[in-house]
Design a protein around this nucleic acid. Structure first.
Lengths: 354, 354
DNA sequence: AAGAAAAGTGTGTGCGAACACACTATTTGT
DNA sequence: ACAAATAGTGTGTTCGCACACACTTTTCTT
């Protein structure tokens, strides 16, 4: 392997018959370099495949990177805590390594707040933005602003197709739906007669629904593709969590009292709510329960076997990767893949982490 | 966040009223420091929570780390290619960052060779060892030798319990078996009557069998625990791949001609072999097929729906983590968790990567 | 008691890059 | 024509650490 063969700025300078200062200037576009010299240096850099020494770079530039994190507000134990943990982990890790990363958090609970808070980020002295595009309209307006102000940004969890982001980190929700469909199909195929499947869209906030609906679409897609609709009967329930917890729970329990489906799929991260009702009513035979996200309350329901499967899109890792990618882009000037797709993980009682 | 608050060696020196040289000596155990001074400095280091600046450290010490990689020999597309990819990826990544890591590969195809090659590593000038403990006896002897020669080592994929390794990276194979059992149970629960399940131990080399048997044990454990043995009928087939490919295939096809089980579980990474036979014979109803590892030939069989589920223990990430952990231990002098357990991932057609 | 060996300590240089600054050569203005 | 502005370039310091080396003090020999 390359030993001591590392090309340094000094080597470039020597070959170009100029000083390291000049080389430095062309590398950082700090201007004031005669065009022919500039070209010559760039040529040599390419020729020698110069790779800056990251350690020296970080050491020398006492830069402080400030990252703006724009995410929905959440309570402890809710989905967004996971990406946040990943973000915090990455920030701490890089800080320990001599970097100076500061994460500034911006949260919102409505589209208006989302836009407003996002705009404040642009004004603030922030080097890079990591955000979740909650609603389309506002996201586009924000992205426009980021673009005009030359602020690099990374989208996590949901994508806005074609957006000039540094990277999108997450997974196609349709694919999630397809995976769930595959699971349901496999798990119910030996049940005789028509299989009743409930799809419950239970969102704690209306601006989460896009991804959930996309999951539903993926699910429907699967059964259409395989021409299996005849064997299945689907019912979708859109429930809003605006009311008190009790109202939703009562509704669910009423539904379960009337009929027991073969399988229930909850598109959001709220399976634990349905699981609660099932635990209480103990319907026989117990319907298959599938949901999303490794949040504590869901994991508990997997452990006690109320929930059968949880799908997860490496939420924590998304946060970690977002920070890492941003640093690599800003600090190392590395190229970042436009899309970083996570694995879709299927968890059941026996392979649950921890 | 901490800004400029970084404690430096100089700060320690000042507080301890000595020179940075002395501090450096106690940090690196370079000896020749008066005991009271030494104690004082250690105290201050703890007090100030000194964390060496990694960038400066790597920059200053032009050390070349040589890692010895001791893994079974493999052909393209086989399981061990995955950890190797991870290892290579990590080495390249760190080298690009100014480190100087060299990976020296040692492979073997028999326990004797394993031991012999392992011993050669000890003699060679190697800073750290990453190995898979293929067989118990030889591994223990090697570990003893590593220990005596003060060579740090990391075990990947399989563990030797209680071994003085820096870290074990992998997963408990029994857990794999439990997960597979859960899948089989869930997927066959609605089949009426006794469910026939085949377990096929198909190893390409006899020293791989330990993990495979452990998986089988996990599976049995599950059904015993849940008192489900009565609903199931298990048959285990131990097949050795010593013979030509044809012999094994013929044997399998003969078995399938006699009887069609409800589910087949292949404990190793060779499901594609059984899948081949199934593709050829097209038994009706098609038995559920579950196997391990995301190697290309298995993935192809998932895509064409011959194989239903693949379990994977993040093989590639294991290799990556091993190198990273070793570097962090040797270079950063960081403490590494004694066990780094991977996620057990369940893959089906719809969530297969790529 | 003199000299050698060992123990204990401080200084200086280099690692590769960033950046401030100083300097020279050229152009521009009047 | 001469100062002022500007383009183009090199030097020197800094970052935090590792390590070689020189130096001082103590202990051991005989």
């Amino acid at each position: 392997m390359a030993k001591g063969t590392h090309v340094r700025i000094k080597d470039i300078a020597e070959k170009a018959k100029c000083s390291i200062g000049t080389v430095d200037r062309v590398i950082h576009n700090r201007g004031k370099v005669a065009e022919p010299v500039r070209e010559r240096i760039l040529q040599i850099i390419k020729e020698l495949d110069y790779k800056p020494n990251v350690n020296a770079r970080v050491l020398a530039s006492k830069q402080t990177l400030t990252l703006g994190i724009l995410l929905p507000s959440y309570k402890k134990g809710e989905y967004w805590e996971l990406p946040c943990m990943g973000i915090t982990e990455a920030v701490e890790r890089y800080n320990e390594q001599g970097y100076n990363i500061e994460a500034r958090w911006f949260t919102y609970n409505s589209p208006e707040k989302f836009y407003k808070v996002g705009m404040k980020m642009v004004a603030d002295d922030i080097d890079g933005i990591i955000m979740n595009p909650a609603t389309y309209r506002e996201s586009v307006r924000l992205v426009r602003s980021f673009f005009q102000n030359n602020k690099p940004f990374i989208l996590i969890d949901s994508d806005i197709h074609g957006t000039p982001s540094l990277s999108f980190i997450g997974k196609d929700p349709v694919q999630s739906g397809l995976t769930v469909a595959e699971l349901i199909h496999q798990l119910t195929r030996h049940i005789s007669g028509t299989k009743n499947v409930w799809i419950i869209n239970l969102a704690s906030s209306p601006n989460q629904t896009y991804a959930f609906l996309a999951r539903e679409i993926g699910l429907m897609n699967y059964f259409t593709d395989k021409e299996l609709q005849e064997d299945y009967s689907f019912q979708t329930f859109d429930m809003n969590d605006k009311g008190t917890q009790k109202v939703v729970d009562e509704e669910i329990e009423e539904m379960l009292a009337r009929e027991i489906p073969h399988a229930i799929y909850v598109t959001g991260s709220m399976v634990h709510r349905i699981a609660g009702s099932i635990k209480k009513l103990r319907p026989e035979p117990k319907p298959l329960l599938i949901g999303h996200d490794l949040i504590p309350r869901n994991m508990d329901r997997v452990k006690d076997e109320t929930v059968d499967f949880l799908i997860e899109e490496e939420a924590q890792r998304q946060g970690y990767l977002a920070v890492e990618s941003m640093i690599r882009s800003l600090s190392y000037k590395e190229a970042i893949p436009k899309k970083q797709l996570m694995n879709l993980m299927i968890f059941t009682r026996e392979n649950l982490p921890l």
